[in-house]
Amino acid sequence: MRHIVNGNHSRLEFDSIADLLAVVRRHREVLYDREIDSRPEYFGDIRSVDHLFELACIGWEVQLDDTLRVAEETVATVERSYDVPLWQSRYDIGGADVDVSRYLSGEPENMISYHLVETPRTGRVVSLAMNIGATYDVSTEDMIKRGKSVVSLVYALERIGLRTELYTDAQAKSMGSGRETAREMVKIKDAADALDPAMVMFAYAHPAFLRGMLLTAMHEHPARIQDSLKVGSAYGIPLKSLANDVFPEGCIILSTVMRSGDHSVSNVEAFVVKHLKDLGLI
């Protein structure tokens, strides 16, 4: 974890979910105080603190099959309706990846290069940051629905042949007239990592990632920031618009479910198509 304090702003940066988990474990008493095991309407299907920590290690599979089915159907529909670019690989003397077997056998063309007829303006790596901040009254169902749409988008990008670099982001401001803000950023997947759908589901779709993991991590902010945001009870007012200056150049921040009843992502296909068009992929 990196902790950056600049005036009234405090930011926590985590290099992985495992990095975040190590910090949350230090504050596990906070989760007991918040009765995580007896509030399914707020935390989702979490049965205990240890269950939350288990999901942070292996991911969330309860709704994964349904999500991947919808993602497959969405990608199939998009491919039928639009000209979707596909990456093609070929062996060459130079390229992005090495074929170890061909290299060891002495084949001169042992590198794998990738060719795209229509190169998207994003290049081969797409960086996405999901703003997962949400007010107290947003239902677990809306948070899950939102996350499943984003997972479908990630799946579509990987299916096309692009590499994804994934983050979560959340920022909250003072409950009063103060100017204090607190922000928590987590890297979920590096571009070089293979996609782990269950882990992405946990980070993007499970309510307890925000309400259990990130809100607990907020106890690492300085005392004056915590007091201003009422960390421990209200946890500040989530911000909808976040700057992307802390992310890789060109990173796209996906907006959050900010208020109860926001059903703007109920149509998964429309959500995926919109962002593929924004990225210049279809």
Rank of each mutant, 00 (worst) to 15 (best):
V138K: 00
R90M: 09
A191Q: 06
S101D: 13
V154A: 01
M199G: 11
V138F: 00
S177Y: 03
V78C: 10
S152P: 01
G106R: 04
H115F: 14
V126M: 01
R124Y: 06
G133Y: 01
P120F: 05
W87P: 13
D83I: 12
V100K: 03
S177R: 05
A192W: 10
A182Y: 03
K148S: 05
K145P: 04
E165C: 15
S101C: 07
V75L: 09
E165W: 07
S105Q: 12
A134H: 02
S149I: 02
A134M: 02
T164D: 00
V126I: 15
V84G: 07
G123L: 12
D137G: 08
S149M: 02
Q171K: 07
A194R: 13
V186D: 02
S101A: 15
Y155G: 05
R159E: 14
E180T: 05
G106N: 04
T140E: 06
K187T: 07
R146M: 07
K187S: 06
A129G: 06
K173A: 04
K189A: 07
E109N: 11
R183K: 10
Y103S: 01
R163Y: 05
P120K: 10
S149Y: 00
Y82V: 11
M130Y: 05
F202I: 11
M130V: 11
K189L: 12
R163V: 06
G161A: 07
P197V: 09
H115V: 15
A194S: 14
D83M: 12
Y155E: 01
E184R: 08
G178K: 07
T135C: 15
V100D: 02
V138H: 01
E158L: 09
E180H: 15
R124H: 15
T119C: 11
L195M: 14
A198M: 10
Y136P: 11
D169R: 02
P85M: 05
Y91G: 10
D99W: 09
T164S: 05
V150Q: 00
V200R: 01
A172C: 11
S152L: 04
A170I: 14
E158G: 09
L104V: 14
S113G: 13
Q88M: 12
V150R: 00
Y136D: 13
Y167L: 00
M143D: 02
P197N: 11
I93Q: 08
A194W: 06
D193M: 08
D190S: 15
G147W: 03
D169T: 06
P197I: 07
E165M: 08
P197S: 09
I93H: 05
V125R: 03
G95N: 06
I112G: 03
M199H: 13
S139W: 02
M185T: 10
V84F: 10
R102S: 04
T135N: 14
Q171I: 04
S101E: 10
W87A: 14
Y91D: 08
R146T: 09
I144L: 15
L104P: 08
N110Y: 12
D92N: 05
A96I: 10
S139K: 04
V84W: 07
G94N: 09
T164Y: 00
V125S: 06
A129V: 02
